[in-house]
């Protein structure tokens, strides 16, 4: 004899696959489950509930007759080119994105902080003639040493510009996503309803998931898009969705798990690197854009 839970699970597996007319009278169900006399009452309850749901559901509004025409007229010029499915698990490509960002950060750091003999602040400053006319000249015939990004770009000619579809939207998304990740990172091990609420509001009020989807769609058709950026946003979308869908008693557990994954994969660090603003002329950005990035 099967337990009540097993019978109910079996019913729920079978019921949706049956035509509606069979659900109405329950005859097929009774025949199928006739071997379980004790389940008769349960069958009746479930069948009547499902029958009611089917028969008295609010009618679905009719779409307009020219609905298909409207959709066809609103379609963009062409769908994105076929791309191989995004393989791998969440950790896999977020790790790759984080690794790429870390390599980039290391490169920037090395270029900035490479020691030189006269790397002191006083040696770097060239005094203005009007302010210190009697100051001794400091190696006038010697070119100041190249620093930071000047070293990195010295052998290059003009780097090819990379232009995103909408850099403003990208910068906005990245800033807000970093805020969510930072808030997530601050969460303690215990359930904190207010902090969870703050994260949820930040995700929902800014429609971050929707923005991310739009960005991903735009990046897909950008021939010059950096793959790491798509992966980074895709990973962020997964985090945002899981946080957004975390409800009920298990919300804190889910969010804590996501937070630990974010910490382990260095997603926040990747955004810190992405959003690191170039300072001055010595540090031109690796990606030329017209937006807030």
């Amino acid at each position: 004899m099967r337990s009540k839970e097993e019978i109910e699970a079996l019913l729920l597996e079978v019921l949706p696959a049956l035509p509606a007319e069979l659900l109405a009278d329950g005859e097929a169900l009774r025949e199928q489950l006739g071997a379980f006399p004790s389940s008769g009452e349960l069958v009746d309850e479930l069948a009547s509930t499902l029958s009611l749901l089917h028969e008295h559901a609010p009618p679905v509004p009719e779409l307009s007759l020219d609905f298909a025409d409207k959709v066809m007229a609103a379609l963009p010029p062409a769908p994105q080119a076929a791309t191989p499915p995004r393989g791998g698990r969440f950790e896999g490509w977020v790790l790759r994105a984080a690794a790429a960002a870390a390599c980039f950060a290391l490169g920037v750091g090395y270029a900035r902080w490479q020691p030189t003999p006269d790397a002191t602040p006083s040696a770097q400053q060239q005094p203005a003639p009007a302010q210190a006319p009697s100051a001794p000249p400091q190696a006038p015939t010697q070119e100041p040493p190249l620093r930071g990004w000047e070293l990195a770009r010295e052998p290059q000619t003009t780097p090819p510009p990379v232009t995103y579809v909408d850099t403003r939207a990208l910068g906005d998304y990245a800033t807000r996503a970093r805020h969510v990740l930072e808030t997530l990172d601050r969460l303690g091990g215990e359930a904190d309803p207010r902090a969870l609420h703050e994260v949820l509001v930040a995700v929902e009020a800014n429609e971050l998931v929707l923005r991310g989807e739009v960005l991903l769609a735009e990046l897909e058709v950008d021939p010059q898009r950096p793959q790491e950026l798509s992966r980074l946003i895709h990973g962020t979308q997964l985090v945002l969705r899981r946080v957004r869908n975390a409800r009920g008693p298990a919300a804190s557990t889910v969010v804590n798990t996501v937070r630990d994954e974010v910490r382990a994969t260095g997603l926040l660090d990747a955004y810190e690197t992405l959003l690191a603003a170039p300072s001055g002329e010595q540090t031109p950005p690796p990606i030329q854009s017209t937006g807030p990035l």
């Binding site: 609905f67 959709v71 379609l75 769908p79 994105q80 499915p85 897909e220």
Partner: peptide
């Protein structure tokens, strides 16, 4: 309802290349 169904198809069209 109609707007959301239309939005669904537009999203699907844009992302059709990623359909597995």
């Amino acid at each position: 309802c109609e707007d959301l169904v239309q939005e669904t198809f537009l999203r699907a069209y844009r992302a059709l290349g990623s359909f597995d």
